[in-house]
Simulated scan of single mutants.
Amino acid sequence: MEQKFTNPGDELFRRYEELQSNPNSAKFLCFCQTLLKSAMLVPRHAEGKGLSILSDQKGGNFIPAFTSREDYGKWIFPTGGEANISFSMLSNTVVDDARLGGIVINPFGRQIILRRENLQMIRRATTEMTVNRVDHTEKMIFEDTRDYPPKLPEALARALSRRPEVCEAYILSAREEYEEEPHLLFLIDFDGDRKLLFPYVADIIRPYMKKDVSFELLKATYTTLLAAREKAKPIYKRAAGASEQVPVP
């Protein structure tokens, strides 16, 4: 989802230099908050296949992002145009694609390289939670749970009712067969791209969760949806022709 472009250049690099000269949690948070207010110019792939990618000498792939029109003008490779993309969306794109190693801001000038682990630190500092993509290789085991804040299901159902692409949603305890400890799973059946819905869902969940709590957002498949229906009632289900909230008893 493209955002109105805001030039974070001077403030962003000032915050970064302050952090480098005297690292502490307060300055790191200021740097993170400046990033989250930013949208950046990103070149599209010349053949129209997503965004352009830069590779480093070690074979790592990075999204190039520019903080000003002047810096964007230093891009020398063919493009299919440009996009104004929020930092949050760029971060989500990296998290969602295991082939990407991070984001490089202003690669041909004063640059900031944010690798996957840096993006996770930024997310943790600004949301007080982790929302990781997990590629499941084993069978998922679901159980019903009430181990979540009591007001969360109603708030989430209300928010999902405003998203016409969402059909059904569950809060479950989940683990893979080899795991001993389950984690909290939000299973959502919807049409479209997870990168467009999941940041919205995470913003709804955030105020209700404790610091350093990990959970998973998962797009439902036919198999996982059937498994969820066997174990729990939905916290939200869209009625035919309209949105309907289904409260948890």
Rank of each mutant, 00 (worst) to 15 (best):
F87P: 00
D191Y: 09
E82L: 14
L218V: 09
Y236A: 04
L29R: 10
G81C: 09
K219N: 03
P182H: 15
L41V: 08
G192S: 06
E244T: 11
M40G: 00
G102W: 09
Q120I: 14
V42F: 01
L218Q: 05
V166C: 03
E138P: 03
E18W: 13
D203F: 04
L225G: 03
H183S: 13
I103L: 04
T126V: 11
L197R: 07
F77Q: 06
W75Y: 15
Y72D: 01
T127K: 09
T223M: 08
I141A: 07
P107D: 03
N61F: 10
A98I: 10
P43G: 05
Q120E: 13
R115D: 09
P23E: 10
V201R: 01
N61W: 05
I171Y: 05
K211L: 10
N7W: 08
I204F: 01
G60F: 06
I204G: 01
C32G: 07
E128N: 11
I112D: 06
I205E: 04
K195F: 05
S38R: 06
L226D: 13
R175Y: 14
Q57T: 06
E244H: 14
K237V: 09
I53N: 00
G80C: 07
Q33I: 06
S52E: 12
K237I: 12
F215L: 14
K58V: 02
F87W: 01
D203R: 11
A46P: 00
V246M: 10
G73C: 04
S88K: 11
R146H: 14
T145M: 07
E176M: 15
G48H: 07
L36T: 03
P249D: 11
E70S: 07
K27Y: 07
L19C: 06
V213H: 07
L187I: 08
M209N: 02
D56V: 03
L217K: 02
R99H: 13
N92D: 09
Y208H: 14
S38A: 15
L41D: 02
E230Q: 08
R146T: 15
E117Y: 13
P23C: 13
S243L: 06
E138G: 07
K219T: 07
A174K: 09
S52G: 07
N7M: 11
E168A: 05
W75F: 13
A169Y: 08
R115A: 10
Q20D: 14
L187V: 08
S214L: 08
Y16R: 11
T93F: 04
E168Y: 07
P249F: 15
P182E: 15
D71M: 14
E179R: 13
L218H: 03
E216H: 11
D97V: 04
S243P: 02
Q57E: 11
A227H: 03
P23A: 14
A65T: 04
R44C: 08
S68C: 05
S161K: 12
K195E: 08
I205C: 01
L54E: 02
R146E: 12
R206L: 04
I85D: 00
L35M: 08
G241H: 04
S214H: 13
K195Y: 03
H183P: 01
V134F: 09
F87K: 00
